[in-house]
Design a protein around this nucleic acid. Structure first.
Length: 423
DNA sequence: TCTGGGGTCCTAGGACCC
DNA sequence: TCTGGGGTCCTAGGACCC
């Protein structure tokens, strides 16, 4: 039986999470800010209605924030992840095959579910259940391909008369909707490609659906060809209910303030390395390639710019924080140059191996550090237990470089150590 | 003064080999 | 003047997503 895709997407997710615990803000404009309180990354519908765009730097809209009384929150990922898990768990109770696509959306396969003979009625019931159990409003789009399900979801949110659910299984309805949707709003068509498409006279989703996939493939890529086929009801993208293992782990941050001091930057690198190593162990993988990058700001034309990165292939893949710290420190010392105001740094891990699958070089020492596995397990367990925090000396204890989070909401649903500390 | 973070996939082009 | 033809592997960069 072919897959029936339902895309469930939480409305204004981060902003909705913040409102959940602040009923006084129910009809007020609420925005969530990026790290360092730099940009707007989520907007409640009231903020959208004010015409404030996604991604604008906060300092550019100070006047509007003041004028309209927009309530701003620093991003509180512990809270959003917790609420996300609750929503996803409910979906998994309703359908055997669910792909958690991002923190606020998931694809479900509705085919063969006894309680989902009438897809639309099923979706309305699921929507109602999520709403009553978590307080989060969702939109649901149903279609024979992922790209069409995205489109159906877009319609479910845009047209309030739909009540937040759109069934787009019929070809005729698909075409009717596509005629109304700009080509840039199709999933997989970004700013660059939509510009080029418009130059070719392709303005709506329907124009794109009626284009020749082969000739657009040669002009663009196989990705766009798949999009065209998906718009015509031919499924090219499968539901992936088991999360694929990561190929890369990145830990990077912009700093609350520019950093000029080498020791401070070094501490930041150590911190990101530690975090990346934790993620790596969470994936149950060993990494062989380690990369470090540092860079100055890119927006101030008067500041001298410097940006560099360096990677190294380790003799043996590892998940030991100490090995990784050693490697990133060497890399950092090689690329650091004094005299610049650094704005961002990061650590990347790649080239992953499963435990026990790496063929070690005969002539190199294969000695994993003694007790490495056990030690790392203990460190991770303590840090996740809520009992305390174990860390490596290189991280430093009083980071000057930590993020600005001046508008953080309390950790309503999460661990007490996530609560903002009173200083 | 102040502009997020973490991913994926695809392609072109260079190095290298026979 | 004319300057092979495949193949593989790797990397950097572009484009997209949330």
């Amino acid at each position: 039986m072919s897959t029936v895709f339902a895309l469930v997407d939480c409305n204004n997710f981060y902003a909705s999470c913040e409102k959940l615990f602040r009923p006084d803000l129910k009809y007020k404009p609420v925005a969530v800010l990026s790290n360092n309180d730099g940009c707007i990354v989520a907007r409640s519908k009231e903020v959208k209605a004010l015409g404030i765009k996604m991604g604008v730097p906060v300092f550019k809209i100070r006047d509007e924030i003041e004028k309209y009384g927009i309530v701003c929150f620093s991003s509180n990922y512990a809270l959003y992840a917790d609420l996300s898990n609750r929503v996803m768990t409910l979906l998994e109770e309703e359908a055997p095959r669910v792909e958690v696509y991002s923190i606020d959306e998931a694809f479900m396969d509705l085919s063969g579910i006894e309680t989902a003979i009438d897809y639309e009625a099923f979706a309305r019931r699921v929507k109602h259940k999520i709403d009553t159990w978590t307080g989060i409003a969702v939109g649901i789009g149903i279609a024979p391909t992922k790209t069409l399900a995205k489109l159906a979801n877009y319609a479910a949110k845009k047209y309030t008369a739909t009540g937040g659910v759109v069934d787009l299984m019929e070809a005729e309805r698909q075409r009717k909707l596509m005629a109304l949707v700009e080509v840039g709003d199709v999933w997989g068509v970004g700013r660059r490609i939509s510009e080029k498409l418009r130059a070719l006279g392709i303005h709506t989703a329907l124009d794109l659906a009626d284009s020749d996939p082969k000739s657009l493939r040669s002009e663009f890529s196989v990705v766009l060809e798949r999009t065209i086929r998906e718009l015509n009801g031919v499924s090219c993208l499968e539901l992936e209910s088991v999360a694929p293992t990561k190929k890369q782990i990145v830990c990077s941050r912009s700093f609350g303030n520019r950093i000029t001091d080498k020791a401070e930057l070094r501490e930041a690198i150590a911190k990101y390395t530690t975090r990346a190593a934790e993620k790596l162990r969470g994936e149950k993988r060993l990494a062989r390639v380690v990369q470090v990058f540092i860079r100055t700001g890119v927006f101030n034309p008067n500041d001298p710019r410097y940006s560099n990165s360096l990677s190294v292939e380790l003799p043996n893949p590892t998940d030991d924080t100490r090995d990784l710290l050693e490697a990133t420190d060497v890399l950092f010392r090689r690329i650091f140059k004094a005299g610049f105001r650094y704005a961002k740094a990061g650590v990347m891990l790649s080239d992953f191996y499963e435990h026990g699958t790496f063929q070690a070089d005969l002539f190199r020492s294969n000695a994993q550090r003694d007790n490495a596995k056990h030690l790392m397990e203990v460190v991770d367990r303590i840090n996740h237990s809520g009992l305390g925090n174990v860390f490596f000396a290189a991280q430093g204890t009083t980071p000057q470089w930590s993020m600005k989070r001046d508008h953080l909401s309390p950790a309503y649903t999460t661990r007490w150590e996530d609560l903002p500390r009173v200083r």
